[in-house]
């Protein structure tokens, strides 16, 4: 209607062009890796014919063994750390919410520390603590370290749910005859569940993606997650070719997840 408010077609095309170029630049390295996952060459850029050899190697081959261990460790650590973080963080959010505001603010301030600190500081500080106390580094230390940087996010995910919860919900359920434990499992937990789920998912993502904190807490017994494996591998020079199919698989899974989430939220909007 109002001509001067309408965006000219040139601006719109210009914007799309800019975004496309930027996206292409972002995706070139990813595309190269994906393309060269379908050939067996050791060196990138040297196409030796189409082959799915790397994919079979990844799952059953000799070369895949230590890599598979690393993948297993990554998933195991992420699941345990995310589960414990969600438990600890939800309890914490619940308790903090009912704490006097002066103490609450202090706890929430300390809660921010692992979020603000760069990974290297979290890693170094835990490394020094474990060294000083003579605690051996390894799987348990890594899981504790991951709980350190995951739980604050769980707290931040659950707190808004508590704030949204009607203040007298608990009392109302009790008045209506529910026992305290019934109230907890049937009233309170369902209210907090969306926050807990996003905290859990976020923790999984943070844990899987972590590198620096794991490096400082994994010790020297050969424990590796995917990140530290890749680091050690790249340091030796040359990337294990089997990482290329792995990279491709992770990428495709993420892409599918993204599309599914997008369609679901669109459907949600239409409903």
């Amino acid at each position: 209607m109002m001509k001067n408010n309408e965006l000219s077609i040139y601006r719109r095309i210009g914007a799309k062009l800019y975004l496309t170029v930027l996206l292409l630049a972002l995706y070139v390295p990813i595309a190269v890796i994906i393309i060269f996952s379908f050939t067996q060459t050791k060196v990138l850029g040297n196409w030796t014919g189409f082959s799915l050899g790397l994919y079979t190697n990844l799952f059953i081959g000799e070369a895949g063994h230590s890599l598979n261990m690393a993948i297993f460790n990554t998933v195991f650590i992420a699941l345990v750390a995310a589960f414990l973080s969600t438990l600890l963080g939800t309890m914490a959010a619940f308790g903090i919410f009912y704490t006097r505001s002066r103490i609450r603010n202090k706890v929430l301030m300390v809660n921010q520390i692992p979020i603000i600190n760069p990974d290297i500081i979290t890693g170094v500080s835990l490394f020094l603590l474990f060294v000083a106390l003579g605690i051996s580094r390894g799987m348990v230390a890594v899981i504790i370290a991951h709980i350190v940087f995951c739980t604050p996010y769980v707290v931040l995910c659950v707190m808004p749910r508590l704030e949204k919860m009607p203040a007298n919900l608990y009392e109302a359920a009790i008045d209506l005859g529910a026992t305290p434990s019934q109230t907890f499992y049937k009233v309170i937990i369902p209210e907090l569940l969306p926050g807990m789920v996003s905290g859990f998912v976020l923790s999984l993502a943070l844990s899987i993606d972590d590198f620096a904190v794991t490096l400082f807490t994994k010790g020297s017994d050969g424990l590796n997650t995917l990140s530290t494996y890749i680091y050690a591998d790249a340091r030796k020079g040359g990337l294990t070719p089997e990482l290329r199919p792995l990279f491709t698989i992770i990428f495709v899974v993420l892409l599918i997840l993204l599309v599914v989430i997008n369609f679901r939220s669109k459907k949600h909007e239409e409903d």
Binding site: K16, L26, V32, I33, F211, S227, I230, A234, F247, L254
Partner: peptide, 29 residues
């Protein structure tokens, strides 16, 4: 600008990707 959400998501997708792998991919390129 009528940019689809999928495009926006594509910008965020690399974020959920192991940064070391992304870096190695760049080095390879």
């Amino acid at each position: 600008y009528k940019v689809s959400t999928v495009l926006a998501m594509l910008f965020i997708l690399p974020m959920s990707f192991n940064s070391l792998l992304r870096t190695i991919a760049t080095v390879e390129v």
